[in-house]
């Protein structure tokens, strides 16, 4: 399936990103990958609204407990 064959934005993004990253993905793997990616993006989006993380003092903080 080519990127233009789907209307799902996560699916379209995933196929384009995989192409750019040099990842060759079997057609049968896509539904599972897109499902996992959709969950990750939704979880990341849920973090945007939380707390006071912006503007970050350190844009890429190194974690220490």
């Amino acid at each position: 399936m080519r990127p233009s064959d789907t209307e799902d934005p996560v699916d379209r993004y995933a196929r384009a990103a995989a192409l750019a990253a040099g990842l060759t993905i079997d057609d049968t793997w896509w539904p599972s990958i897109v499902r996992h990616l959709g969950v990750l993006l939704a979880r990341a989006a849920s973090l945007e609204a939380q707390g006071d993380p912006t503007p970050p003092a350190d844009p890429a903080p190194v974690f220490t407990p």
Partner: peptide, 17 residues
């Protein structure tokens, strides 16, 4: 494979959180 496709902005927002 899904993780490899996550945009850097998502990773950074998680680290800031």
């Amino acid at each position: 494979l899904a993780g490899a496709l996550v945009p850097a902005s998502a990773y950074l927002v998680a680290q800031r959180f």
